[in-house]
């Protein structure tokens, strides 16, 4: 997967790049709209991540131009502007998603994955997880022939952890993924724990769930080779 990140804030760009590389993406950087356009003209990307507040050009204008050269790429707008008009305009211009800054890198990856799934069509693929199989597309968890019923939020949690397997996810990161901007300051509240407990209970009835680990004081992680 090839990604172009157009972001004028260099420090931020390097962090995103480091993260994406670790997630096995090939990442190109551009710090101005001009640089970005040059790269878009001679390369084909799967993802183009666009900052709207570029020094030389409005990101939305760049989006329009980039679409001509790279119509198949998935476009994600990253911006600190965050007003609704920009969002609507961006999505109207053909952006696939919109992440307001500051965003979590995990969330970014999750959105990218969701877009890839959407773009790659319906050919669903089963991800093995211990004795279980997870179909992200159809949102099904199964144990041999048995489908296990999870609530929407439980499934979201499970698939998010699965996407970021072998990585500790804090309660905050998990709740932000599920409840978005409506999360409060009181993360210590245990509603994530309640959901995790339910997942363990539901899946535990069919088979061992020791792959779902609790990291004391931090959060949870799915351990998977």
């Amino acid at each position: 997967m090839k990604v172009l990140l157009v972001e004028d804030e260099k420090t931020l760009a390097y962090e995103v790049e480091a993260f994406l590389k670790k997630a096995f993406y090939i990442c190109d950087l551009a710090h101005t709209a001009r640089q970005g356009l040059e790269k878009i003209e001679c390369n084909l990307y799967d993802f183009i991540l666009l900052d709207l507040g570029l020094p030389d050009k409005d990101g939305l204008v760049l989006l329009e131009q980039a679409k001509k050269h790279n119509p198949d790429a998935a476009y994600i707008i990253l911006t600190a502007r965050g007003n609704i008009e920009d969002r609507i305009k961006g999505l109207d211009l053909g952006a696939d998603d919109y992440l307001p800054k500051p965003f979590s890198l995990l969330e970014l990856q999750s959105r990218m994955q969701a877009i890839s799934r959407r773009k790659s069509g319906m050919n669903s693929q089963l991800i093995p997880l211990g004795e279980f199989n997870v179909d992200i597309q159809k949102r099904i968890v199964s144990h041999q022939e048995n489908e296990i019923e999870l609530t929407r939020k439980e499934f979201d949690l499970l698939s998010y952890m699965l996407l970021h397997k072998n990585r500790v996810l804090t309660r905050l990161q998990l709740s932000e993924h599920i409840w978005g901007s409506f999360v409060d300051d009181d993360y210590d509240s245990n509603y994530i724990d309640v959901h995790i407990k339910n997942i363990r209970k539901k899946l535990g009835a069919y088979g061992p769930v020791e792959w779902l680990e609790t990291v004391r004081g931090v959060g949870y992680k799915i351990k998977k080779s």
Partner: peptide, 17 residues
């Protein structure tokens, strides 16, 4: 303020990994 917060958040996230 959003940009430095972004950088910090992403740095910490990368560090945790």
């Amino acid at each position: 303020l959003m940009t430095p917060i972004s950088i910090l958040q992403n740095k910490i996230e990368n560090l945790m990994e």
